[in-house]
Simulated scan of single mutants.
Amino acid sequence: MSLKRDNTAEKREVTSIRNDYVRSVEIEEKRKSAHKVRLMRRLAVLGFVILMATIWIGSTIYAQTQTISEKAQLREEALLELEQVEKQQNQLEEQILLLNDEEYLAKLARKDYFLSEEGEIIFTTPHDEKKDEEKPSEKE
């Protein structure tokens, strides 16, 4: 018989007492639960904002790095071009100095235009391409 009493005792439901203390505890639990939900929502929104800011900052830094590397490459190309232009300018300045020399002009005119001084005879010899190609190999 004692087994039957235990089974029946377990089946009985306990009714809660509806007094002010129990109601205040229930209200406090609901308030804590609502506060926890609001806190989780705020943390989720804050996490999302931080994630988006991190992505934006990362993409900005990546784009700026690409721009900087492109500009560095353009700068190197411009420096090489500047170096070539300076070499060409130096050559042209040297040529200007040579062209201001009358002896050089006379020599250049005789060479390129087959001009001669008085009493001078110019003989032209045909240039054979094969002989011109063999001469550098003989020097080696």
Rank of each mutant, 00 (worst) to 15 (best):
K130C: 01
E140I: 10
T8M: 11
K87H: 05
I55G: 04
G58H: 08
R31D: 05
D101P: 01
V45W: 03
T67W: 09
Q95E: 08
R23S: 02
A34L: 09
G58W: 01
H127Y: 01
I27T: 12
E93Y: 09
R41I: 07
S24I: 01
I57M: 12
R42W: 00
Q89D: 08
W56S: 15
R38T: 08
Y21E: 14
Y21P: 01
L3Q: 10
V85W: 05
N19S: 11
L46H: 12
T67E: 14
Y104F: 10
A106H: 06
I121N: 14
Q88E: 05
R31C: 02
R41S: 07
I55D: 05
Q95I: 05
K36D: 09
N7T: 13
T124S: 11
A109F: 00
R12N: 12
V85E: 08
D6S: 13
T8N: 09
M40F: 10
I68E: 07
H35S: 13
N100Y: 08
V45I: 14
A53M: 02
L39A: 11
R23G: 01
V49L: 14
E81S: 12
V22L: 07
L105R: 05
K36F: 07
T8L: 07
K4S: 13
A53P: 02
M1I: 14
V22N: 08
E118T: 09
I122C: 00
E13S: 13
E129C: 01
T15S: 15
L74I: 11
A109P: 00
Y113N: 05
I17F: 10
R31E: 01
R75F: 15
R38I: 01
E102S: 01
K4N: 04
R41C: 03
Q73A: 15
L92R: 06
E129A: 02
F123C: 07
N100S: 06
A44S: 13
E93N: 15
A106K: 06
D6I: 04
L108V: 06
A53L: 05
T125K: 15
L51D: 10
D132F: 05
V25N: 05
S33D: 03
I57R: 02
E140K: 09
L39C: 11
L51N: 08
K130S: 07
E28N: 01
T60D: 03
M52L: 04
L79C: 01
S59N: 15
I122F: 03
D132P: 04
I27S: 06
L51H: 06
V37G: 05
A106T: 03
I68T: 06
Y62W: 13
N100C: 08
I121E: 13
R42C: 05
Q88T: 13
E134P: 04
D128T: 10
K131C: 00
Q88D: 00
E10S: 15
E117N: 03
Q66T: 06
G58I: 02
A53Q: 12
I68G: 03
I68N: 05
V22K: 10
Q89H: 12
F123K: 01
V14M: 13
Y104W: 14
E13A: 07
L115M: 02
I96E: 04
N19V: 04
N90M: 10
E77Y: 13
E138I: 05
V14H: 13
I50G: 01
K139F: 10
K11E: 14
A109K: 00
E94W: 03
Q95W: 04
E129M: 03
G119Y: 07
S59E: 12
I96Q: 10
I122L: 06
L97D: 14
E86D: 15
K130P: 00
